[in-house]
Design a protein around this nucleic acid. Structure first.
Length: 107
RNA sequence: GGAGGACGCCGGGCCGUCGCGGCGCGCAAGCGUCGAGGAACGUCCGGGCUCCAUCGGGCAAGGUGCAGGAUAACGUCCUGUCGGGGCAACUCGAAGGAAAGUGCCACAGAAACAUACCGCCGGGGGCUUCGACAAGCUCAGCCUGACAAAGGCUCAGCCUGACGAGAUCACGGUAAGGGUGAAAUCGUGCGGUAAGAGCGCACGGCGUUCCGCGGAGACACGGGCGCGGGUAAACCCCACCUGGAGCAAGACCGCUCGCCCUUCGACAAGCCCAGGAUGACUGGGUUCGUCGAACCGCCGGCCCGGCGGAACGAGCAAUGUCGCACCGAGGUCGGUCGUGAGGCCGGCCCCAGAGAGAUGACGGCCACGGCUUCUUCGGAAGCUUGGACAGAAUCCGGCGUACAGGCGUCCUCCGCGC
RNA sequence: AAGGACGUAGCGGAGCUUGGUCACCGCGCUCCCCUCGGGCGGGAGAGAUCGCAGGUUCGAAUCCUGUCGUCCUUG
């Protein structure tokens, strides 16, 4: 089990992106809202980012990066990442830096 | 050595650490095991499977279109035929029918489908001109005669006749020539003819539902017969094929709601009520059955025809179990039959999978590529942020498309050497 | 999974049914006139692989096949 659960329903995504705090990078946008009982994460990669292979790999890499953060303990949050075009061409460490920038802005 | 053709294949490998999904074991921690592709893609065809319809006929709609074969099936594949391309290996082709009918063929051209503008030819009609001829009349000249009559000769004019030529008119014949066009009635030559024409002949081309021969057949060869365009990826004709939907199919379970079970007549039976006498019988009512009619519904393109009058229909879903992760038109190896696509037999293997959906990060070594340096030209060392197209969601068979780099086999042509 | 529409000049559209001058319209663009200058107005002009590749035809934007892209519908 990962330290966080997945955000699945459309309504949850809408709530986080509308009510949560927004931290925008050049390739990733991150929304953070208060959660309960567990931290949940959703990752949105639109069709404009690339083909299925690119979108899948990008999502997996973000999940691998999140494994480095202590999300299995409070405070519980609901987090949504939205990838923008060009994110699929980043190397892994560049992507990790993008995530780190977003999390520095949202402690 | 160079140029080219066909077919098949790979899509980096091994090891380790952390992380993810399924399954199995375990009380648990955890352990074991498996875990994307040749195209998983596009969704262009064909099937398996599931539900609905299913008795037949007709029409419509769609598709396919050389032959034989392969296959569960196909619009796929194989072998061949014909036609186009290539010196060749080989390759490409929606490759039935245009004397069943309809439509269209711009511009140009006489004319684009059944015709004839110019031209050529024939026999005619009238016309007038010309030519030579004949007859007649008139005038003139000359000769004989006598300055007469008469006769003869020459020239001119008029008229008539028949002939030839010319132009013209309509009729008929013709399709060689003209010149346009993508395309003009099969091409060239000779004969032939009034002029011409496949009208005849020779060679060639095309068609053929005729005959012979070869072949399983497409078709080929020989003969006979015929020779008025094109377009069917225009309508169409012919032959063959196709029931409809789709795994969000569908099955089971849960909850809620809606709606329906018709009318008339005849016959037979039962029951009830009234009259009659408690019986026979008569009248009424009702239930079930059969038949007929009406109405309604179904038959999922329509009609004929058929079936039925009972069950169904709709909604609620973060949807439970199954379908569903597979013993399968399965993979692989070998044998065998076949030119081949493939068939058959045997051994081995079990090989992703669901809850919106599991593969990512890092390190080491090797192979390949690139760059730099060295070199005894064999190679060696170092560096490397180089490695395509692309991700299963019901499953198969094809087709089509994308793809860094690389490998193998066979064949053709050209050049050189032996 | 099933089905449908579209692609034509810088932009928005017509032409496709029934093939025939390499294609029309509006806005925009260039030049000229008008004005002191600009706009408006008037005149002239340029600009097109008809998404791409094949095929049918004498001839294709139009017909056929394949392919690429965009958008939409149903559950």
């Amino acid at each position: 089990m990962r330290a966080y659960d997945s955000l699945r329903r459309r309504g949850d995504f809408a709530r986080v992106t509308r009510r949560g705090k927004r931290y925008a990078g050049s390739y990733l946008t991150c929304f953070v809202a208060d959660g309960r009982r567990q931290t949940r994460v959703g990752i949105t990669v639109g069709g404009a980012v690339g083909g299925a292979v690119v979108r899948n790999r990008l999502r997996r890499r973000i999940k691998a990066i999140l494994d480095r953060y202590p999300l299995g303990a409070p405070p519980w949050r609901d987090i949504v990442f939205i990838a923008r075009p060009g994110a699929g061409e980043l190397r892994f460490d560049e992507l990790a830096a993008e995530v780190a920038r977003a999390f520095r802005a949202a402690p």
